[in-house]
């Protein structure tokens, strides 16, 4: 049986407060063992509703767990989505206060910016490329609100797929000028390379992650909108960061993007 409206409202407040107070909490499936992925999305949409009600703008979406490296790292093999609020954006070359987060990790990603809406079901790589305005390199800073970064699928979906911050930078290019599948990237932490990969690590092609989000959104009658930023999920494992760390991502044909944690 799905969670009732009162429970969903309570869990939305529970997780959003954990985020706002940068405090790790037990995952929701401990108190609600029956919670499934749909319940998780109901809680995530409740968190989104709370933020929008306070004036937040939803600037896009993110895909979670779209590469094998990520599936291994978190022990979950079902991709998911989360939303990006305007306040999650950090500037290329800028700073993020580590104490505003619990146990942040950084992932190298591709960001698609859409010029047209994308509506599932039945979206595919071609639909996405046709609707894409441009592509950029992105760093996503994920931060599970759960203790020890440990969670099951329902819990992580409820927690907005660990969405916390993101940084866009480098060059923007038309998607059809690039071979994103074989586009290579190197992520450096404090000047040392910590992760290598190529776009195909994300579901074979990063645009497939955008299609996946559109198809998942269709199950709730929702869609991606023109102007949305869509992060396609970590190409490699996520790297833990703390105050003092500097992260730089360089992507073939797309330049670089960096962020410092203070």
């Amino acid at each position: 049986m799905p969670l009732d409206a009162a429970t969903i409202a309570e869990l939305g407040a529970y997780l959003e407060n954990a985020q706002l107070e940068a405090r790790a909490v037990p995952q929701i499936s401990i108190a609600h063992a029956s919670a499934d992925m749909d319940d998780g999305y109901a809680v995530q949409w409740e968190i989104r509703r709370r933020k929008v009600a306070r004036g937040a703008r939803i600037v896009g979406m993110k895909a979670g767990v779209t590469s094998r490296a990520k599936m291994r790292q978190v022990g979950i093999d079902t991709p998911s989505y989360g939303f990006l609020a305007d306040s999650y954006a950090a500037l290329d070359g800028g700073e993020i206060e580590a104490r505003s987060l619990i146990h942040p990790r950084v992932e190298p990603e591709f960001a698609f910016v859409l010029k047209r809406g994308v509506e599932g079901p039945g979206c595919h790589v071609g639909t996405v490329l046709a609707a894409t305005d441009f592509v950029m390199p992105a760093l996503e800073i994920i931060d599970s609100r759960y203790r020890d970064f440990k969670f099951d699928l329902a819990s992580v979906v409820a927690d907005n797929s660990s969405s916390a911050r993101f940084v866009l930078g480098g060059r923007c290019r038309a998607a059809d000028d690039l071979d994103l599948a074989s586009s290579g990237l190197v992520m450096e932490k404090n000047g040392e390379a910590v992760a290598f990969g190529a776009g195909a690590a994300v579901l074979g092609h990063p645009a497939a992650a955008v299609a996946l989000i559109a198809n998942l959104l269709a199950r709730r009658g929702e869609r991606l909108h023109a102007g949305d930023i869509v992060l396609t999920g970590g190409v490699t494992e996520a790297t833990p960061v703390k105050a003092g760390d500097h992260i730089r991502l360089r992507v073939q044909d797309l330049g670089s993007v960096s962020i410092r944690f203070v």
Binding site: A181, S182, S183, G184, L185, V186, G197, A198, G199, A200, A201, R250, V251, Q252, D253
Partner: peptide
């Protein structure tokens, strides 16, 4: 770009 070329 020998440094950043991707391998799949």
């Amino acid at each position: 770009d020998l440094e950043l070329c991707g391998l799949v």
